[in-house]
């Protein structure tokens, strides 16, 4: 209840801030549609030349694009803007005020900036996923849909946990401004099924920076490719990741001594 109230306050503040730049918002939405067109054109060029990519057909690739955009929306609407704010607050010491507030600091650091217009991308993502699954002609059973949803959430939690750890490193290495670049740069790899990449890239995007866990894996569940055992492993991994991230965050906060104060 408490958290919902806080989130709705953050939403209100961010809507007000974005209303100051209405033209910008409109241009951004147009650009967003343009990129969607480009991505679909890219897929159509690929599938003009082949019928399967990494074992998947065009419908499945469109659904994967939807899942990718879902994750990308989370990153672009919440994670990146808050990273910027967080890094700024470490530099100028304004993190002090965040820590003094009577709410968990990890929560405040995660949600204080929200890029509102990005939310519309959620709608597009869902349309892509539904259309893609239909095109693929897969019979998605209710159980498959349920595991798909669970694994999308757990994949998002894994990436979120990695992000918390990366920004928490700033407490130890103050000049670590590039803390999230590796996540940003590799995110694009999530557009395609992980099976198309060479083995060493697969290892990086599955274990090191587990983007595949949030994109390829949920879609495998939707296709019914995953055994129950593996689904449970992925769910367990996300719980462990979230727990480990909160520990690292706490240890980091302990180290924080404030800048310029």
């Amino acid at each position: 209840m408490h958290f919902l109230k806080l989130i709705s306050t953050f939403l209100k503040v961010n809507i007000q801030m974005s209303l100051a730049y209405r033209a910008d918002t409109l241009v951004n939405i147009l650009l967003n549609i343009m990129w969607l067109g480009w991505e679909l054109l890219g897929l159509s060029i690929i599938f003009n030349n082949t019928t399967t990519l990494g074992g998947w057909g065009i419908g499945e690739l469109i659904a994967l694009l939807g899942v990718f955009r879902l994750i990308n929306t989370m990153m672009a609407s919440i994670i990146w803007p808050n990273t910027e704010k967080f890094n700024q607050s470490i530099r100028d010491g304004s993190l002090d005020y965040t820590l003094l507030q009577p709410a968990p600091s990890m929560f405040l650091v995660t949600f204080s900036r929200i890029t509102i217009w990005r939310m519309w991308d959620l709608l597009l993502s869902i349309v892509l996923i539904v259309a893609g699954v239909r095109m693929a002609g897969d019979v998605a059973t209710p159980l498959n849909i349920l595991t798909f949803l669970l694994l999308t959430v757990s994949g998002a939690i894994v990436l979120y946990s990695l992000w918390i750890v990366l920004i928490a490193f700033t407490f130890w290495f103050t000049k670590f401004d590039n803390n999230v670049t590796i996540l940003q740069a590799l995110l694009d790899a999530g557009r395609y099924p992980v099976s198309v990449y060479p083995a060493w890239v697969q290892i990086i995007v599955t274990y090191l920076v587990p983007i595949a866990v949030a994109t390829t894996v949920p879609l495998q569940a939707l296709r019914g490719d995953l055994s129950l055992g593996r689904v449970l492993i992925f769910l367990a991994v996300s719980v462990v990741a979230a727990w480990a991230a909160s520990l690292v965050w706490k240890a980091g906060i302990q180290r924080y001594s404030g800048a310029s104060s």
């Binding site: 690929i46 399967t52 990519l53 590039n178 670049t181 740069a185 694009d188 099976s195």
Partner: peptide, 29 residues
Amino acid sequence: IMYLLYWLVSPIIYLSVWTSIASAKGSVN
């Protein structure tokens, strides 16, 4: 290093996508 990382990722993705198609089919066009 960070810049190099950005600059590497997309060509390697496209390289992987197209080589995986070409090796499955023998050649593309």
